[in-house]
Design a protein around this nucleic acid. Structure first.
Lengths: 195, 195
DNA sequence: GTCTATAGACAGATAGAC
DNA sequence: GTCTATCTGTCTATAGAC
């Protein structure tokens, strides 16, 4: 684990991000020290500052790259059809994406309060962008007469909250496959929204 | 705010709990110092230790009393009828209880990882007890043929996750009354579970 | 029951050698 | 790019005066 001086591995940067992601998710940003992260990577604490100006930036970049990947993946997803098929696509996409990045998801929802005000604003706007994508689908479904939704804003947040819940219990290798989980949640979302 | 020596107010204990609850919810357990709590209360840090053996116990007691109150309130709620009316009672109870204690709810879900192993086990068992109350209702509804639920365990967690989502956006004085929020969520839960 | 003072550990971040 | 060493500050918790 411990690295010798000047090993110049060239992959220290990603290793720092990975270690920070895991440790922040497990113990919380405030409870993790730079020394702990360094120990995981196999360098001394001072070396971390070649890759990040401070601890706050480390957190911010983890959250920002997670949200950016989330938005880009959704944007790139081939999809068509009416609101119902769009909602199914969103539900399955969200579950799949989140189940594969449990640590990043956890941090993105739990560490908002540890962001500096500027960083918070920045992450919040990415999050709102994602929520808006779902709300547009719900609004379209309502205008098509396919969905029965008293309040699209609340329904948006309710659906996302429900889907995020998967991360509190799912462990890979459990009794359900990824596809079965997707389908189970999709059934609940569909019935909750469709008249 | 600052208190004079030996003021013996007799209400310092509750004031410590209140301050800790608010500060833990706002900044996170690990990010809040005993000195911060003391400053809020108007005493010096050392005085806190007349009321709690350590910071960890302070967190644990906040979470334990929240979960105990939650379970007792549900147990005492007068209710009857079939699974559908039980589910409505649970939904409305959960929303009402949680909206009135946003800080305690936030802590109960966010600070689990900052509990010592023994304390974690203890809180987890209270939480499971609450989840079981809902799952029993869902199972009853399935056997009555009223609910269509592929997996009562997942449905339980999905419903609770959805309902907890209310705490991420509701602020009292908003455009919706408590009763309207209850009804909006109940509509979604009902349609998600009922065939 | 609260104060002041402090022990002892550990935090984030930096400087300079290599 | 990483090391060692360290600055400066804060933390939890305790001791003893009042």
């Amino acid at each position: 684990m411990a690295r010798t001086q000047g090993s110049h591995s060239g992959i220290t940067g990603p290793r720092i991000s990975d270690a920070a992601l895991r440790l922040f998710a497990q113990h919380g940003y405030a409870a993790v020290s730079m020394r702990q992260i360094a120990r995981e990577v196999g360098v001394q604490a001072g070396a971390l500052y070649n890759y990040t100006p401070d601890k706050q930036s480390l957190l911010f970049r983890l959250m920002e790259s997670h949200m950016t990947e989330l938005l880009a993946s959704w944007r790139d997803l081939p999809r068509d059809g009416g609101a119902l098929s769009q909602l199914e696509a969103f539900t399955r996409f969200h579950i799949r994406f989140h189940m594969r990045r449990p640590d990043a998801v956890f941090i993105a929802y739990m560490e908002l309060r540890n962001l500096s005000p500027d960083n918070f604003t920045s992450i919040e706007s990415l999050r709102r962008e994602y929520e808006t994508a779902l709300e547009m689908i719900l609004k379209q479904g309502v205008s098509e007469g396919v969905f029965v939704v008293p309040d699209t804003k609340i329904a948006t947040l309710a659906v996302i909250a429900m889907l995020n819940g998967v991360n509190t219990w799912y462990r890979s290798g459990g009794r359900l496959s990824l596809d079965e989980v997707e389908t189970t949640y999709w059934e609940m979302v569909r019935r909750a929204m469709v008249s």
